[in-house]
Amino acid sequence: MTTDDTAAAPMVHAIDEIVAKPGEGKALLGDYLARYAPGARARGMTLEQILVSPPMWLDDQSNTLVFRWSLADAGAWWQMRFVGGNDPDVAAWWADVDPRAVSRRRFFASAPADIERLCDV
């Protein structure tokens, strides 16, 4: 296969999907931005998008919060992982979140056009 060495390395994405406990959505979003986002930015993550579903604050049902972060490349992903994985404040943050959530997922993704280059290692 051929690759274009002059092109930027493929960007990767980290996505947090949090289903908040009923009535917790708005407060959880605020805490995420105040407590988690600054440290994540310091670890090289760029917050690209926030989505709230449904697009209204529910007080008797769950809102789903989606945060899409970008990282420059797979190397930046590992840098984020090593720093965040050894930071007790990060662990404490997620320990606080989980009782306020019905469920939570974190997954990693790329644009389809970047798959071939990401796998060419």
Binding site: W77, R81, G85, V90, R106, F107, F108, S110, C119, V121
Partner: peptide, 21 residues
């Protein structure tokens, strides 16, 4: 390849990552 392949960091590592449930 072992460290940088997405099957490692985007798939397997979630079993090790304190940020992943």
């Amino acid at each position: 390849p072992y460290m940088m392949h997405p099957y490692h960091w985007a798939r397997i590592d979630r079993w090790f990552d304190p940020e992943c449930p």
